[in-house]
């Protein structure tokens, strides 16, 4: 099958051994910084950095390629639409009616697009290297109620499954002569309606069956849960966490006080 059916890639790399709480805090800090900054160079560094972390953590090219395939169309769309609809400052490279293309708005569009990619890759650093059970344990240890943690983990776990079902439903409707790529954009959007409705019905049915399966396996019978593999916070985890927090504080100060990464170029 062409789709990944489990986000987690088993392994024993430094990334896998890292405490899930540290990875989660890294995702939060990196996302906050990326949302506050607008620099094209910062986004580029974040994107390249995320790739390096994934590769050094033994995450396969196949998985990295899958994230690219998922995000690249959105990134290209955002970059193009930004350039068209947000007139830039400075000397225009091209000016025609409402269209005004400048180096500034090209850089801004690219920065926004790269930010989407960087955010996705940073999230997948956590998801690819953390098993579902470790993910829940990490979130629960940070204070999240267990049921919420499990709900979140299952929602993430079901993303690729739902993508696979979406493909199956699309095939089933295309087999009934549904044309998805004909006509104007409005017609194409309407053509997706049978897929979206069937998808919703399947998702609701899956959710109901899953809840019944959980209930029938005594989910919620014990208020206080114990864990078979409790988390161990190693000195190295503490060191990395301190590094992440210090770097985030320094970059936040540089952004807010010195204006670092405030402009696209």
């Amino acid at each position: 099958m062409s789709l990944l059916y489990d986000l987690y890639q088993p392994g024993d790399s430094w990334l896998h051994r890292l405490d899930p709480r540290v990875k989660f805090i890294f995702v939060l800090c990196a996302s906050l910084l990326l949302l506050l900054m607008r620099s094209l160079w910062v986004m580029l560094i974040a994107l390249v950095g995320a790739q390096l972390i994934l590769l050094s953590g033994g995450i396969s090219w196949r998985r990295i390629g899958w994230v690219w395939r998922m995000t690249l169309p959105t990134m290209v769309l955002i970059a193009v639409l930004w350039v068209i609809f947000y007139p830039g400052e400075g000397q225009a490279l091209l000016s025609w009616r409402f269209l005004r293309i400048t180096p500034y708005n090209i850089a801004e569009g690219l920065a926004v697009a790269l930010r989407i990619g960087a955010l996705a890759f940073i999230l997948f650093i956590w998801l690819f290297s953390t098993s579902q059970s470790a993910l829940i344990r990490g979130l629960v240890a940070l204070g999240l109620p267990y049921t919420w943690g499990l709900t979140l983990a299952m929602a993430l776990r079901y993303l690729p499954t739902m993508a696979g079902i979406f493909q199956l439903i699309s095939d089933a409707q295309r087999a009934r002569a549904l044309e998805l790529d004909q006509g104007n954009p409005l017609r194409r959007a309407r053509a997706h309606l049978p897929i979206v409705v069937a998808m919703l019905i399947t998702a609701l049915r899956t959710a109901q069956n899953l809840s019944l399966a959980l209930a029938s396996r005594a989910f919620g019978a014990q208020r206080k849960r114990t864990h078979l593999h409790p988390l161990h916070f190693r000195p190295l985890d503490g060191l990395l966490l301190a590094g992440i927090l210090l770097a985030t504080a320094a970059l936040l100060w540089a952004r807010l006080a010195l204006g670092l990464g405030q402009e696209p170029l």
Binding site: I165, L168, I169, D171, A172, Q173, R174, A175, R176, A177, L178, E179, L193, P194, I195, V197, A198, I201, T202, R205
Partner: peptide
């Protein structure tokens, strides 16, 4: 040939009915 054209000749009933019902 596109699927929409072949669908006139070849009908395909998928394994899970919920994958087509909407």
């Amino acid at each position: 040939r596109p699927v929409s054209e072949l669908a006139r000749t070849v009908g395909y009933v998928f394994q899970n009915p919920d994958h087509q019902i909407f």
